[in-house]
Amino acid sequence: MKHTIAVIVENKSGVLTRIAGLFSRRAFNIDSLSVGATDNPDYSRMTITVEGGEDVLEQVIKQLSKLINVIRVSELQPAESVERELAVIKVAADRENRSEIMQIVNIFRASIIDVSARSMIIEVTGDVEKVDAIVQLLRQFGIKEMARTGKVSMVRGARVIKV
């Protein structure tokens, strides 16, 4: 079972280490982790995907909440939230297959952000499944390099997760 949690943390040095350290010490599995700024420069927001049952999720949330620099921890229910991930993918592309690749890019509403004689960089945004799907399709051309951000999530509607 995969769970997505949003964690608001103080924007201080060492906070990421504390969170990573907690996960390794308590033998929790992180699937993905992304960190970035919030509208308040004192705080950052992490989106963490963890693997495990309800009991694991409960421990993850409680243990994270114990860290002094952690301000808030909330689970995001997939049905009630939107999630996005961004990937940049460098694929092998030449005159022969360039148009075929561009078709795939169009279908996924992805974009091409760099082109050279033998490669292209494609940028795609979407939920994790969408990113997985385009990666799968691009594999046939040869993926030379890929970087994914890990996902960020937000609850739909008026509800907010803030400090």
């Binding site: 421990q59 409680k62 243990q63 909440s65 114990k66």
Partner: peptide
């Protein structure tokens, strides 16, 4: 007093 102990 430590919620993380409950159910651990």
């Amino acid at each position: 007093v430590d919620p993380a102990e409950i159910g651990k």
